[in-house]
Amino acid sequence: MKELERTKRISISAVLFLLIILIGFLTFKKPQYVFEKNSASTLEKIIKKDYILSLNDLDKLEASQYAVIDIRSNYEYEKGHLKDAVNISAHDIFSKSSIELLDELKANGQTIILYGEHPDNANSAWMLLYQMGYDNAKILCVETGYKDKTFQINDYPLEKPRVNFAQFMDSAKSAKSKKIVKKEKPKKKVITVPKKKKRAPEGGC
């Protein structure tokens, strides 16, 4: 009988073991989205800078070749957007419908053209899509805004210095030596408290 008891214990532990493995199999989750491109190849692409379009470049493309995607929020999109643009807010880029749309565009060989308030926002979305394998994505280098209550979209001068920094600093420095001579020293204000006259000692002879 002792032998039997032992086998019982063994079979129980074996069943448990199998259960654990089964649970492991069932709960195993494949990551839903993965980066297809590694960082080094992304960097190569970044250096090339062939994915940045201006409004002029967009005009040259045929309408069937591309789809414009507005990555701003839905609220902003409703206020005003580029003609024929589709709204995929950067916040729900992983939603089922947007992934389906992106996959469809990729399968059709159409160019995905992203734009946002600022090229930086579009760039973030582009970096994500490119690394996820949507290598047909491009950025529209524009700035959006409103003028006279109508939607405006203008080319953005990317990384253009506002002034010549070195020159500007030089002139700012030379201003110093010129004007130091002119500079007046602030007068020191001295508040003098009038001396109290001493009372003549009272009394006495």
């Binding site: 010129k178 500079k183 204000k189 508040i191």
Partner: peptide, 23 residues
């Protein structure tokens, strides 16, 4: 590294130091 001077239109308020001397 910018000079202390302002451009002409701007006037920098000069802070006067108040010195109170106690006699």
């Amino acid at each position: 590294g910018v000079g202390e001077a302002e451009s002409k239109t701007e006037e920098k308020p000069v802070q006067k130091k108040k010195v109170v001397t106690v006699p």
